[in-house]
Write a protein that binds this DNA or RNA. Sequence first.
DNA 1: GTCTATATCCTGATAGAC
DNA 2: GTCTATCAGGATATAGAC
Lengths: 223, 223
Amino acid sequence: MALRPVKPQHETRTRILDAAEELFMQHGFEGTSMRQLTARAGVNLAAVNYHFGSKDALIEAVFKRRLDPMNAERVAALDALEKDGQALASVDIIRAFVVPSLRLIEDAKGGGRNFIRLLGRTYTEPAKTVRALIGQMYAPTMERYKRALERALPQMPADELVWRMHFMFGTLAYTLAATDTVQLIAGCKPEDRYDARLLEERLTVFLAAGLHAPLESSIKKAA
Amino acid sequence: MALRPVKPQHETRTRILDAAEELFMQHGFEGTSMRQLTARAGVNLAAVNYHFGSKDALIEAVFKRRLDPMNAERVAALDALEKDGQALASVDIIRAFVVPSLRLIEDAKGGGRNFIRLLGRTYTEPAKTVRALIGQMYAPTMERYKRALERALPQMPADELVWRMHFMFGTLAYTLAATDTVQLIAGCKPEDRYDARLLEERLTVFLAAGLHAPLESSIKKAA
DNA sequence: GTCTATATCCTGATAGAC
DNA sequence: GTCTATCAGGATATAGAC
């Protein structure tokens, strides 16, 4: 029972998940039918319900497959940074958060790029269930990063930090969702478009600057 | 034929547009059926096809109604700023772009808030037609703002500016889409959540800082 | 302009043979 | 575990009376 070459054990599940990633990204959840999906995956129509139970359960499985490892990677990166015991620079915290998601845009073959665009798009997804699902998958990681930033920026008011984290998260989300599509980037060299290192550096620098924006704005003048 | 009190001339059209804004925002385009939509609007099922021709044409009308005036406002704001003839500060350019969209979040009654969330969500919308539609409605305004920023920041490399505009646009998009929903803002005072002035100041400060982030990052070290 | 009734098609899900 | 055939319902769109 050992050494059988390719053993297509969960192969059908994987094919379905890959096809779902791609089609959900292209057409959204409601815009993708089980017929399209199973045809693309090269499996039978009934296979999705057999392996996952329902379309909703499939959606959940699509996110779970990638999101759990991605957030584990983020937390591990923070752990590694904090090992030294010395204070963290906020740039490093930002980079630790950004990198695990951006790296996937280079994984065109394995479908990571499809997922990452789907993920970016889903942050603003209206669907009741989906948003809650993602939110709870993210919650512990977000809490962890919030505490890290609080320690790195003790002088920043709590509500200001919350807003700036919100903005940062949004910039990342849009960047993930739009890497392929946006007309603006037309001005950018095509070979740079999928260079994750370049993008993560650009994005990190931008976010760090925003996070450190001066506090004495006209907001305070009003008080 | 004058002075009839309320003349419900295009009233049916308006009711349909309002209902569409709300339901598209809540459930997406594919997730909203004509039956739901006409029921919510209090009009007959056939009315949509009579007044707009098709569901797709309705979607287009929803965006046209708000987007054209909004972008006109943006261009007018730039015109006003440039009237003096002196160089513009990039903060003012950013604010001129951001304000016309954020102000709509205070229009809960007129449906502006619904639209603004729909708009934010639609920037990352997968649907083929919709994205193209929005893109072409925005193109001239974006071009105009790009030139203004180029003049305000002559020292910035062209490709760097394009990326930073991309990030800025993304942050705004996400902010629009998520004003209501995101769990992060739970830490924020509830009465501030719909205060457009506060939000636009916070966002403008954040974006301006990101736009002016130092250029000598590790990107340059690689060269 | 508004409404009812309906045509045509596609959706997610399942029963049951293999 | 995979397939075919099918169910029950919902989708957009339209024809035609009022």
